[in-house]
Design a protein around this nucleic acid. Structure first.
Length: 785
RNA sequence: GCCGCUGUGGUGAAAUCGGUAUACACGCAAGACUUAAAAUCUUGUGCUCUCAACAAGCGUGUGGGUUCAAGUCCCGCCAGCGGCACCA
């Protein structure tokens, strides 16, 4: 039968039987919540990367389902975002309509690729019933003091006249027009994720993330332990506080350096034009300039003098942009003898270099001596930790995002939109372009902006910024659990999280979270933070402290030329084109056979042929074998071995070797009974669901194979098998011994039989056997002299 | 510069705990079927020496080390990929 007909037939059947893939908690069965990062539904449809990671996830979900677990494998759409907005602007269309079209295409393609998704749980971050709760979370953040408004520099494209998200700035340039991006101060909503830095670190211990993911998060949070030390400033009451990890080098602090934004620098600028000019210049520096000017240090003397608290010496205070406002206190003590940046600075401006840790023969004038070694402890200042993690800029001056549910009242200040008024719907607008001054298009809609203050009833204005992309994906793993209350909205004040504690504690945490390395820091950290925050609010089950248990990162598929697939390179391979040409099962098998699930691989259609041949042979094999009454003994053993290997490899996401083991089975097995044939088909079912279903029914089955059980490995079957024991002399294998399993356990027997082997005799002849090392069932090594 | 990952045949890659390196597949070569081609099937395929077989030697980026035994563990170096980058 042609693959097209087979696919159409079973896709229809599966659509008519949603119970097959429906996730439901039954007391008797253990649950598995298998989550793949939900896609952004772009206009170009599912790309090969989506297909790759989803095939792997689907195989695992199908495998676990057949093993008898209650599997939840849901899907949804992370549909807010710039590409849709840009497309809408360009084509004068509504983002809502574009999104609906795109998600329809994605869903259709996913169904074709046979993903065993529970479609009843489908969610969409742009659905007001969904983002009502995204907004509710923001309100709670605000109420708990974790969201605040602040002037922050953002990236600004002077050509497009819009604010750019960090993702939109590529090498310091605007992603759309290539113009150099500038910095501009705009008042923004900030979320205090830094309050959770320590929790985000310690929580990692409760997860089963692989080490590289944990390390990525640890590095991103970037904790350093040190102390804060206050320096008196001559002629001023206010002290300058610095942060250092090396308080022991305080005696060598020959000057202080403060950031251009530091209050002391601003103070100095009032009196000194040169300082004022420097600050102005530094402020206007774009990211591009900052990285380019990386090499040469710049700075200016502030005119202020500080007192080193260790020895009461007068040291100058300098202003330099290599000191960052956003880290520590925005001021440092400079120890040129033991820090290379301070050294560069000191050399350029002729400042003293005072060694604290002595090193024989070290030329301190030439280079700083930077070592792990510490000087004697100095107990000045107080111990504290610093983190690289920054607070999270939560505002976007764009249209296609969740409106931030805040109202600014001239009397009451910032007031939240009352919970019962949620969702605060995104109004339909005529134009989606950002305004000339960089504000969100919402700011032009007076009916949206002007409102009454919920507190005092006076006239007030709404926030017009929208939320970043990450907001909707911070809690979607909860939304899948609560889909009934999200897709059929609750009225009034009822809270989905509080109401559904039981459901949450049944499904959470996510058992396996499959996603890309590019999300190992931001998305994973943001969503862990939001979960922890909700946990602190008391709306999450008390004993579930982390949202994800295990994290599996999938690899990347490059184009046939070895480069990342892109339209401009013209090396794009779409899953659809491959499925049309060879069939879905061939595509699925090939994607998995390419290499390890985590690695980076180039597309190679030639290798795909091998997989196609295998699947054809598999079908022919079943046809030929199906009338057998019984299996041959060797075939039965081989099948049993395959069951063991395939089961183990599926468990560990080693899908490439699963395919290899199935190929091996087909190559070696010669005779199977109809009953045993069923087991073999089950082994391939998670990988090639269409073919397996078709063959299964050809054997006379009436129910779907995907609802059937997983074959069991028979431990005893291989017991009386013969085993081959390699015999080595001085570590080099010279011959092998074939013995029964029983015999292989007795060392003395193995040694004496090995010494009877002709080849071994010649190697041992005339020499003394110093040592015999026998690893039962594995190998024998004779050490001779 | 810092952090992480990777290095195995002509190619994609296998090798649970340190225990027969190169499974599985592509490609290539020879053969079968065919008027022919495609498809399919069979056999062979790390390197060196050899007409060939046997045997032997060498082989997992590189130099050392530990061990009866190292692709696997430890130390140094080289190359490639990804991320971060004046973080005090």
């Amino acid at each position: 039968m042609e693959f097209r007909e087979v696919e159409a037939k079973w896709q229809k059947y599966w659509d008519e039987h949603p119970e097959l893939y429906r996730a439901s908690i039954k007391k008797s069965k253990e649950k598995k919540y298998i989550l793949n990062e939900f896609p952004y539904p772009s206009g170009s449809g599912l790309h090969i990367g989506h297909a790759f990671s989803l095939v792997g996830s689907d195989i695992y979900a199908r495998f676990k389902r057949m093993q008898g677990y209650q599997v939840m494998f849901p899907m949804g759409w992370d549909a807010f975002g710039l590409p849709t907005e840009n497309y809408a602007i360009k084509n004068k269309r509504k983002p809502q309509e574009v999104t609906a079209e795109n998600t329809a295409v994605f869903k259709k393609q996913m169904k074709k690729l046979a993903f065993s998704i529970d479609w009843e749980r489908e969610i969409d971050t742009t659905d007001p019933n969904y983002y009502r709760w995204t907004q509710w979370i923001f309100i709670k953040l605000f109420e708990k003091g974790l969201a605040y408004k602040k002037e922050m520099p953002i990236n600004w494209c002077p050509s497009c006249k819009i604010g750019l998200a960090n993702e939109e700035v590529v090498n310091g340039r605007c992603e759309r027009c290539g113009h150099e991006a500038e910095r501009r101060n705009i008042s923004q909503w900030i979320v205090k994720i830094t309050d959770y830095a320590e929790r985000l670190l310690s929580g990692l211990e409760e997860t089963d993330f692989e080490n590289k993911v944990k390390l990525a998060q640890i590095n991103w949070i970037g904790k350093s332990e040190g102390s804060r030390i206050k320096f008196k400033i001559e002629g001023r009451d206010e002290k300058v506080e610095i942060f250092t990890t090396r308080a022991d080098t305080l005696p060598g602090a020959s000057f202080l350096t403060v950031a251009p934004e530091h209050s002391l620098a601003l103070e100095a600028a009032k009196k000194d034009q040169e300082v004022a000019n420097y600050i102005k210049k530094a402020k206007n520096k774009s990211d591009l300039e900052r990285t380019e000017l990386n090499k040469e240090k710049t700075g200016v003397f502030s005119g202020f003098w500080a007192i080193n608290p260790y020895n009461q010496q007068k040291i100058p205070v300098w202003v330099s942009d290599f000191v960052l406002v956003s880290y520590g206190t925005g001021a440092i003590m400079s120890v040129p003898a033991h820090d290379q940046r301070d050294h560069d600075f000191a050399v350029k401006f002729g400042l003293p270099i005072i060694p604290v840790i002595k090193k024989k023969g070290w030329n301190f004038d030439k280079e700083a001596y930077v070592s792990e070694e510490r000087g004697k402890e100095i107990k000045i200042g107080k111990k504290c930790n610093q983190y690289h993690l920054r607070d999270w800029i939560f505002s976007r001056q764009h249209y296609w995002g969740e409106p931030i549910p805040m109202i600014n009242c001239p009397k009451c200040g910032w007031v939240t939109v009352p919970e019962e008024e949620l969702p605060l719907k995104l109004p339909e607008v005529e134009a989606y372009e950002p305004t000339v001054d960089g504000q969100s298009p919402l700011s032009k809609i007076e009916s949206f902006v002007n409102c009454r203050c919920p507190k005092c009833g006076g006239p007030a204005k709404r926030e017009t910024d929208t939320m970043p992309n990450w907001a909707g994906s911070d809690w979607y793993y909860l939304a899948y659990c609560l889909f009934e209350d999200i897709n059929k909205p609750l009225s009034g004040k009822k809270n989905i999280f509080v109401k559904n504690q039981k459901i949450l504690s049944e499904w959470m945490p996510v058992d396996v979270y499959i996603g890309g390395d590019e999300h190992n820091t931001l998305h994973l950290l943001y969503s862990r933070f939001i979960y922890q925050f909700l946990h602190d609010l008391g709306v999450m089950p008390a004993d579930i402290r982390e949202p994800y248990d295990k994290r599996v990162s999938h690899g990347v598929i490059l184009g046939p030329d070895g480069f990342r697939m892109s339209k401009s390179r013209g090396n794009v391979v779409t899953p659809e084109s491959v499925a049309d040409k060879y069939g879905v099962d061939v595509l699925r098998l090939y994607l998995m056979f390419m290499g390890p699930f985590e690695s980076v691989m180039a597309w190679n259609e030639k290798t795909l042929i091998g997989v196609k041949r295998f699947l054809d042979r598999f079908i022919i094999f079943v046809e030929k074998q199906k009338s057998n009454r019984e299996s041959s003994e060797t075939s039965l053993r081989l099948l049993n071995k395959s069951i063991k290997g395939v089961t183990q490899d599926l468990e560990n996401f080693n899908f490439n070797t699963v395919v290899a083991k199935l190929m091996e089975a087909i190559n070696k097995i010669d005779k199977l009974s109809r009953e045993d044939l069923r087991k073999l088909i089950k082994l391939i079912a998670p990988l090639a669901p269409y073919t397996a279903e078709e063959l299964w029914h050809k054997l006379g089955e009436k129910e779907s194979i995907h609802g059937s059980g997983w074959p069991e490995y028979d431990q005893k079957m291989n017991d009386n098998e013969m085993v081959k024991i390699p015999v080595a002399v001085n570590g080099k294998v010279r011959d092998q011994l074939e013995v029964s399993k029983e015999e292989s356990q007795i060392e003395s027997k193995i040694v004496s039989r090995a010494l009877e082997l002709d080849k071994i005799k010649t190697w041992v002849k005339g020499k003394e056997i110093v040592k015999e090392i026998y690893v039962p069932g594995k190998m024998l090594n004779l050490v001779v002299r």
